[in-house]
Design a protein around this nucleic acid. Structure first.
Lengths: 349, 349
DNA sequence: CCGATGCATGCAAACGCTTACATTGGTCAC
DNA sequence: GTGACCAATGTAAGCGTTTGCATGCATCGG
């Protein structure tokens, strides 16, 4: 019944030859190859993924592990990766792994997480994994290693695993220094809450770099200028209202740790009757689709490109290129738009 | 070598019993089941997906076909479906099938589309498909049928296939009638471009219903009040600027075919110095995450719930429930927020 | 002209499970 | 007590490929 058998008969060859021809192996004569292809076409034959996987040990399937499915950023990454993998003939299996320490994460959440590791990731359904912004405890890391599958992390912190990440420190320095070089001296920062946010490291790293830049510029840091918020438009909006409404401070610029927060900041400023950038400059990080629309100055981190890059890495590894597991760096770029300018009270340097 | 063998030996039973115990079949004594589970645990054994699929013909994998990966709406749907499927032990394989008639779609795009059908969807990698807003030509529909796999469509038009859709006509009527009942008489409509937009039917259906409602109210339709735009914030923004800047018309309300366009409309109105809802009311469709933030009145179509619902349908079908392939209707609800009010020049009815 | 070399192909053994069918032993009604 | 029946388990035949090894045949250098 094996379907490949029928193709073999129609083409007048053995199943071995059909398999080889369809897999594009070299040792098949052009004539035979054509015959086989025609036979396969006529019968509408397509190799059974399960049988092929079982026999070859390869699935032509890559698992993508995402912490969030409804975030613009991760979807941009997914989109980039998807395209490359599809072109290479790989399917994508999606795994949703919510952050372990998420706000209000109860036992149920932990169990889901555990189940994903125990039950889903280990079925040998994929040849390799792409893990986006994944943070693991030791046990989980051990489990992943036992899978003996290539795994490339994108962002996040995976000690000992092959990871490519954005240089968050450099990015935050660049953003802060951009504002400083425009002449701003009272620069506020909106960041994520390290206790509750997924992805613990990123907000902290960015905040530290911001503080370092401020200090380097010879400016005394003022803790009142730093506010914590959700990584959303609404979070940025609320934080900005608080920043601009606090009589003890008079920021002329805001550095938001994400574009969505920055957009919230712009909207909040408008609602308070402040002009951007005349009264207040705003800069974000990401390169969000909407940044251009809002005229937002940002540090673009090319999320879609990140997806492509990590997919390429995986493909190389699967192709047998022993990719050296160094932590590579992703590109970023300052994109200046209308939301930043010199402050009113200070001449441009 | 078969790993199940080792578990069988450790537990002191046959591989058949191990298989049955791990699959949760009934005819295994509690004692044996426990033994097997312990042995499996100790060895870190997990059933090989490929072998299991080959032997059983079931993959425990559902394919989700999306037209767009970077749209809020589809991701919300995906999120809803993901959760249910994961709970049921199903993996999700993601397929990206860009609309055939997309703006500027060249041969390359057609080839990609064709390849997806020929090469990816037919590998028997999944037990069933969920197709979101999928539009097919006859050939493609035939190919899908040949797969002999359950297929449930969500939105979109799949004649002859099991589909659940929003009643776009009712939704658009509801939106328009809401504005009419507030006393508006000059109501603009922002819709998608049927020539270039994915998902041909939706904008047209909504526009027709809008026109019908207007006419029913005894108001003469004015084609100038209808504008075409991208389904984005930017699209809505630009369209609204044109609507409000046209001296020949004086709309007091705008019905946008999506929340993102509606948000664009609100932003455009503000930029033109018009107050929402005092000078101009705005209503959208979707139930977008940001609708609440912007105070947007909308017809919520509960996208995440849609995902859950379609996933449940698939699960039922896979469980052998012969689900009758009627076109079911999805719920929707008018959510009134700050963006709609009675027009200044007319008393509330 | 001959053995060596190598390409194209066939043969058949895995790959790691599931499941129909067979077997066993115990329960139960009569 | 005994046959019928059922629950629990084992046996073994697939499931549809891939691939190592063997084979056949042609080419080639000497």
């Amino acid at each position: 019944m094996a379907k490949i058998q029928k193709v073999a008969e129609l083409a007048g060859v053995s199943t071995a030859t059909v398999s080889r021809a369809l897999a594009g192996k070299s040792s098949v004569s052009p004539a035979t190859r054509t015959k086989v292809e025609e036979a396969a076409n006529e019968l509408g034959y397509v190799v059974s993924a399960a049988a092929s996987s079982l026999a070859s040990g390869k699935t032509r399937n890559v698992g993508v592990i995402l912490p969030l499915l409804d975030s613009w950023f991760f979807m941009a990454v997914l989109k980039g990766a998807q395209r490359l993998l599809e072109d290479a003939g790989y399917d994508i299996t999606l795994y949703h792994l919510p952050p372990a320490g998420e706000l209000g994460a109860g036992d149920a959440s932990k169990q889901r997480r555990r189940r994903l590791f125990d039950e889903f990731l280990r079925r040998q359904r994929v040849d390799a994994f792409i893990a986006v912004n994944l943070e693991l405890d030791d046990e989980e890391r051990a489990l992943l290693s036992q899978l003996r599958r290539p795994l490339v992390g994108l962002g996040g912190v995976l000690p000992g695993l092959h990871t490519v990440t954005l240089d968050d420190k450099a990015v935050a320095h660049l953003a802060t220094d951009h504002l400083l070089s425009l002449g701003h001296t009272e620069i506020a920062h909106i960041t994520g809450d390290p206790d509750f946010e997924r992805d613990f490291q990123v907000p902290t790293t960015r905040r530290r770099a911001y503080e370092a830049s401020i200090t380097n510029a010879g400016i005394t840091r003022n803790p009142l200028l730093v506010r914590t918020a959700d990584f959303t438009i609404e979070g940025g909006y609320n934080a900005t209202k608080q920043l601009l409404g606090d009589p003890r401070i008079h920021p002329t610029a805001i550095f938001a740790a994400s574009d969505e927060m920055a957009i919230g900041a712009i909207l909040a400023a408008r609602d308070l009757g402040k002009d951007v950038p005349r009264d207040i400059s705003v800069i974000g990080i990401d390169g969000h689709d909407l940044a251009d629309f809002f005229g937002l100055t940002t540090i673009d981190q090319f999320p879609e490109l990140q997806g492509r890059q990590v997919a390429q890495l995986i493909l190389d590894e699967l192709a047998g290129q022993g990719v050296e597991p160094i932590a590579e760096e992703l590109p970023h770029e300052l994109v200046v738009r209308r939301s930043t300018a010199a402050p009113l009270d200070a001449p441009t340097r």
